[in-house]
């Protein structure tokens, strides 16, 4: 089975499966389905699949996941205070203010970070309010 990187991806279908990018793992993370894609500036540093990715880090796309049960496999770190503050813009040009406090790793090989999670500002600091952001360029795609 071969998987495609984000830069080589021609189109994303609802049936496309997001997989762990790391060799000998490639665990299934989530099905793309109808996940909204958002633009994130100043995100915490994410796993890069190739060195070229260094060139275009000013704008980065992430899938936004509001319900953690949508994930098939994911590891969520404990809160860490020292992470960068991202600026998140959705398709509708709505700015979302998220207090980033956690990183996402592959639940099987424990490598990452492949995303981050945080609480929208103004919401109660409770894990049930966490929003999850999966870095499009940090994972591989299985196109069916």
């Amino acid at each position: 089975m071969s998987y495609t990187s984000y830069t080589d991806l021609k189109s994303v279908e609802e049936s496309t499966i997001v997989r762990c990018p790391f060799k000998n793992c490639h665990a299934r993370i989530i099905q793309v389905g109808t996940l909204p894609k958002v633009n994130v500036e100043n995100s915490p540093d994410m796993t890069k699949l190739s060195e070229d990715d260094n060139m275009k880090q000013t704008e980065t796309y992430f899938y936004q996941i509001d319900d953690v049960w949508e994930f098939d496999n994911i590891g969520v770190s404990r809160p860490a205070a020292e992470l960068k503050e991202p600026i998140i813009t959705s398709d509708t040009n709505e700015k979302v203010d998220i207090a980033v406090e956690r990183l996402l790793i592959c639940s099987e090989c424990d490598k990452g970070p492949i995303g981050f999670a945080g609480i929208p500002k103004g919401s109660e600091n409770h894990h049930q309010n966490l929003k999850y952001f999966l870095s499009c360029a940090s994972v591989l795609y299985e196109v069916k």
Binding site: F22, R28, T47, V68, W69, F71, D72, N73, I74, G75, V76, S77, R78, P79, A80, R102, L103, I105, S107, E108, C109, D110, K111, G112, P113, H127
Partner: peptide
């Protein structure tokens, strides 16, 4: 049992320092 201690360039030590709160596994 949640986070194996793996030495790897892709697994920055800060993740092992922060630790894992929970995992979803299917």
């Amino acid at each position: 049992l949640l986070l194996r201690f793996v030495e790897d360039k892709f697994n920055p030590s800060f993740i092992t320092t922060i630790g894992i709160d929970f995992k979803i596994r299917t």
